[in-house]
Design a protein around this nucleic acid. Structure first.
Lengths: 199, 199, 199, 199
DNA sequence: TATGAATGAGTTTTCATTCAT
DNA sequence: AATGAATGAAAACTCATTCAT
């Protein structure tokens, strides 16, 4: 029984309309803020209000929540992805590159409260987000990990940890980090790297 | 099995009359089932129905969802907690004990759909659950970790990883494991241990 | 992106709860009234308000709009269905029986504003209603029509009009009858019968 | 075909400049298409998109949905209206003329998905549509009906069926015909005519 | 003239939670 | 003690309509 807005539902809006462009960015900024405060599952209404627009406007620009989330974090994901190859060149050792890159990623996830939570594909609508993260970052984590492993020589874990598991593992380790001062995601992640590179 | 009597409530009752826990147990059984099927966030109504009682009854026994979850998993958490000291004695090395115990914990977490998700204290109402897990298991993980560290000698991480971080880290690594066949929580956890014990 | 009512959505209702039974009937009465005023597509909220209950209560009793509509009109549909065989016995001729029965049906449909509109299965959610009407009344209309045809002798229309077409035709002829004083559904329907029985 | 020029707008323009109707026609074509696909209740946006114009343009040309619908079907309604007198002359009997004309009307209504539904004046905003149909076609149906009645001699229905009732009755009988293969609007309509002309 | 961004009311549906019986 | 009816806040999503540009 979806709806169908028949004649009855027609009523002129109380106050006029028509503010122009610029909404897109206002929306992105507002969403980023709200995501930090309430997580990526925050009500659309909340975002709209914060942005000073109507909910319809949010839906116009980002028909699904995923698209909004992806848009909000695209810049940072891109930056993170691009940092990988660069670090490999600039760092003293591949292991350093990997550690630095991962720290970058952790910082990103921890700063954006709720992002880590949204990263595992369970939540409805965060699938696109998950896919985007995985698609963009797994290749990077894979190559950094491979380089580091090659550099430290044979390790003791046979079917070696792959880039996907590393990325998701790191992502998971960041969950709740922002709100729990006794929890040190960074240290855990570095320990995980150490473990992955143990000869 | 709504009629299952509490295992040790037989013989001459030491307490006055002693036979309340009837729906209590039915509730626990039902909740356990539902948690497996639909996760720990399943509607209360679903649990009540499965148990053959009214929702009011659920609330009477377990005013908050947390209390219900805690009750459901208490047995297993206890078993896990008690396994710690025993493993320390039985295992060849403290590291073995730690690894085995953590694997036990991982198994528990991964088997119970959604438990790992509920474990980090973000969600309103899961605080009691979180507190119970932490209160009961952190001492165990701490002592196992300490023993293992003592055994392997000095490690390279200065303010060493503590039992709380280990427990929560492991918990986080288990998130989503059940629904993602490409994700290997166990391997990640073992790598984490390796990292924590790297000289 | 259905929903999922997480912790955040939990807020104690401002005013208490728990009025007992009797809602069912209040609901039915209210719905009947609202259907007359606004058609069977009236917002659920409107019905709930008129009945003095919350929307949840409506959904509890009638999970789909169809079930509500069917419940509202069941009595009258039953009465109509049962009148068929009786009229066949009591009337002077089968044609009289048919005409009287159809007039009964018309009266029913026209009185309940919007019922005729809902009768054709297009509207979302009125499928069950449609099925109920058809299932219950087509057999009646069929037998009355057959009896009348048998009585008047051979007619000029070869593949004779069947009970289904008669019922739906009559139903359609009643659409809008209540709100258009210049439109005489009854006369049209009687003409239709005449046409169906023309030798 | 957005560039299709209005058929008779060629030659030397008798009016000042005369070449506005451009998007007007594109709109009409698009609306016709959309009406067939999604019914006359299709979202305005859909029509605008199909026509390659903004919604504002639709509103500029057709402030109400009715006006759009009327415009879309004007040609065909005109054709139908003009067919009446012609059929009266060309047909063997006035009854034949009436039957043929009504069949024409039925064909028109059934082909246009949702048109029959929109024809009864209930829905807000379809008033203009209703008025146009009635204003244009009732005179035709009246005269054809009158001629047929005069030809068959006295009938048994006292206040005889008028052209308005005939037209609306036929319209109603067409509702849902397109989507229900078991429903034969044409046969019903012919039966109705038979009934109206029964001596 | 045309555009289309913006608006926001309106509707459905789900559940946690209370409390009269 | 148990029950489950009742409540109503919430959240998603759709579209008709306006109006700044």
């Amino acid at each position: 029984m979806p709806d169908t807005q028949d004649g009855k539902a027609t009523a002129a809006p109380s106050r006029p309309v028509g503010r122009p462009r610029r909404s897109q960015q206002a929306l992105l900024d507002a969403a980023a803020e709200v995501f930090v405060e309430s997580g990526v599952d925050a009500p659309v209404r909340e975002i709209a209000t914060k942005a000073g627009v109507g909910v319809g406007t949010v839906y116009r620009h980002f028909p699904t929540r995923s698209e909004l989330v992806v848009a909000v974090y695209r810049h940072q994901v891109e930056a993170c992805a691009e940092a990988g190859p660069r670090l490999l060149v600039e760092s003293a050792t591949p292991e350093d590159a990997l550690r630095t890159w991962v720290a970058l990623f952790v910082d990103f996830l921890v700063t954006k409260h709720g992002l880590a939570d949204a990263l595992h594909g369970d939540a409805a609508g965060s699938d696109a987000l998950h896919a985007y993260f995985v698609g963009r970052l797994v290749p990077v984590s894979s190559s950094l990990l491979a380089a580091a492993r090659a550099d430290v020589g044979p390790t003791n874990d046979e079917p070696a940890l792959d880039g996907y598991n590393l990325l998701k593992g790191v992502g998971n380790l960041c969950i709740g980090a922002a709100s729990d001062s006794g929890y040190d995601a960074d240290r855990l992640v570095q320990a995980l790297i150490s473990g992955a590179l143990t000869p």
